[in-house]
Every structure is written in structure tokens, then in C-alpha cells.
Design a protein around this nucleic acid. Structure first.
Length: 282
DNA sequence: CACCATGTTCCTTG
DNA sequence: CCAAGGAACATGGT
């Protein structure tokens, strides 16, 4: 479920609900998910810790924790992979089939579940160090973006998925941002003009900000009872109207471009689907 | 059965 | 050493 906007909405939702709560117990049901932290290590470290806050970095969510009143603070880092979810649930509520880690917060459990187990929830913070700039912060500059693109012959769409270039863009919003910028996903990164780089940077920021706004507006269900409770495209089946018209190209192969009417195409780049309008994007 | 899926990391190749 | 491509991870939906 996650790219940057989905994680941002999750964190905004969760932060006020768990702030100042104490972790009483830790149950690890799928060891792989906490790696490289060990089950025993996680339990020893988390038990008795207080949640100071919850923040986001790229697609990661970060719990800031503190053991004692004036003790050193430390972090619990999570990533949702493709199918991860985090939610608060009453103690009596049955756990979902793929619940991987359960934190006992007293009245409620904080449940981390992930159908495919691609995600992580661990004390290892090393992945945060490798990340590039946050796209919605001032550190993401046109100059820095341009110089990073200059050296690569790779297709721009593929470059956008590199988390060291700019952090938080995934397969959906990469296609969306390129469409908004009017740039073909197949263009070699180094061939973009200065104007195109600036347009793309702006488009990235708009697409992500809009998705956060959308996710903050729409009524979301973060509980475990139905669906994925977020605002991903996959809800189309019985989704109400406001889920439509949101994505302009992603998963719309064969349908009309909402801007020019041409037929949206799907191609494969780096073994992943890319969607684009061959007329709007050159 | 076949193919597809919101992500990252590791291995191989050049 | 680096860049780029592809497989692996694991489960479910269509």
C-alpha cells in the first residue's frame, strides 16, 4: 500500500493516538519482519519504552521512543513494503492472518501486518542513511536534482524510483509526475533540459502534495475489519466517486488521457509497469 | 494455469 | 570501482 503520501497520512493519523503511550509487551509472529533485529533484542528494548512521537522519512515511518524519563531516545523504523499496514485495535479483536508484530499498548494493540512480508519493523536505522532528499522539503532543489540526473543514461522513470536521488516516489507517482510534467518516461535522464527538470521537480511536489491532501480529506478506515483502509487505486471496485479521476495515467492502459484524449499506454521498464500518454509526454 | 501487483536488496554482467 | 539489468523475496487477485 505505500508510497510517500500513504505513509504520511498514516503517520498523521497515528501520531496523536499513540503519543505518550508505553509499550507493555512485544509479540513477534514473523521473525523475518524484524530483521536484522532479533526477537529477544526487540522485546528487551521496546518493553517499558514510551512513544515520544511518530514521523515519516521517505516511505519509512519512525517511532521515536524513550525508555526512562531522561534516558536516551531511540528509533523503531518501519517500512510497509507492498502490502503492509499498521493499525490500532482493541485487545479482543482477532488478529489478521498475516499479523507480523503486535505491540501491547495497554488498552489496545498496535498491529503491524503485511501479507507478503516484504516490509520491515526493526531497530535498524541504516536504511534511513542512504536516502536522498525529501521531495516536499526545500532540500530538494532543481540544481541538485539536475546534477543527479546529468550523469545517467537510464530512463527518467527508472531514475525516479531510485531512493538516493529523491526519496519517497514509487511506481504509481513516478508515472503520475511524468505525465503532469509532460515528459516521456523513456527519455534518458541526462537528456532532460533545464526547463524539463524544473517542471518535473514541480510536478513531483504537486502530485505528492495532492495525494496527501486527498488522503487527509477522504474518510479512511484504518481498522483491520475491511479492505486496506487506505486510498490506493486498488479500491476501484466498490469505491465511491471520489476515488475516480484521481490518477491520470497509472493503471489506465487503453483508456483516454483526460487531458488530450489519446490512448494511455503501458510499457515495461526495469521489470515494472509504466503508464503514459504518448501525445502529452514527449 | 498464467500473469500481475503500491518495494527493496542482492547477484551478475559489462 | 560503477552502472544497469534481473531475480528473489511471498501471497493473493484476476
Amino acid at each position: 500500500m505505500p508510497e510517500l503520501p500513504e505513509v504520511e497520512v498514516l503517520v498523521r493519523h497515528l501520531a496523536p493516538l499513540v503519543r505518550n503511550r508505553t509499550i507493555r509487551g512485544v509479540e513477534v509472529r514473523r521473525e523475518k519482519v524484524v530483521r536484522p533485529t532479533t526477537v529477544g533484542g526487540l522485546q528487551r528494548t521496546l518493553r517499558g519504552a514510551r512513544i515520544v512521537g511518530v514521523t515519516r522519512r521517505a516511505k519509512f515511518f519512525v517511532f521515536d521512543l524513550r525508555k526512562r524519563r531522561r534516558g536516551a531516545s531511540f528509533k523503531l523504523v518501519g517500512h510497509l513494503g507492498m502490502t503492509g499496514r499498521v493499525f490500532l485495535a482493541p485487545k479482543r479483536q482477532p488478529l489478521p492472518k498475516h499479523a507480523a508484530v503486535v505491540l501491547d499498548l495497554g488498552r489496545q494493540n498496535l498491529v503491524y501486518e503485511d501479507t507478503r512480508y516484504f516490509g520491515r519493523l526493526s531497530l535498524d536505522t541504516s536504511s534511513l542513511a542512504k536516502l536522498g532528499p525529501e521531495p516536499l522539503r526545500p532540500e530538494f532543489t532543481s540544481a541538485g536534482f539536475a546534477s543527479a540526473l546529468k550523469r545517467s543514461t537510464q530512463a527518467i522513470k527508472v531514475r525516479l524510483l531510485d531512493q538516493t536521488l529523491v526519496a519517497g516516489i514509487g511506481n504509481i507517482y513516478a508515472s503520475e509526475a511524468l505525465h503532469r510534467a509532460g515528459v516521456s518516461p523513456r527519455r534518458a535522464a541526462r537528456n532532460l533540459t533545464g526547463v524539463e527538470v524544473s517542471r518535473l521537480r514541480k510536478a513531483i511536489r504537486q502530485v505528492l502534495a495532492e495525494a496527501i491532501r486527498f488522503g487527509s480529506t477522504v474518510p479512511l478506515n484504518f481498522g483491520a475489519d475491511d479492505g486496506d483502509g487506505l486510498f490506493y487505486y486498488g479500491r476501484a471496485a466498490n469505491a465511491p466517486d471520489y476515488y475516480e479521476e484521481r490518477l491520470r495515467v497509472y493503471d489506465r492502459a487503453g483508456q483516454r488521457c483526460r487531458r488530450c484524449g489519446a490512448t494511455i499506454r503501458r510499457i515495461v521498464q526495469a521489470a515494472r509497469s509504466t503508464y503514459f500518454c504518448p501525445v502529452c509526454q514527449r
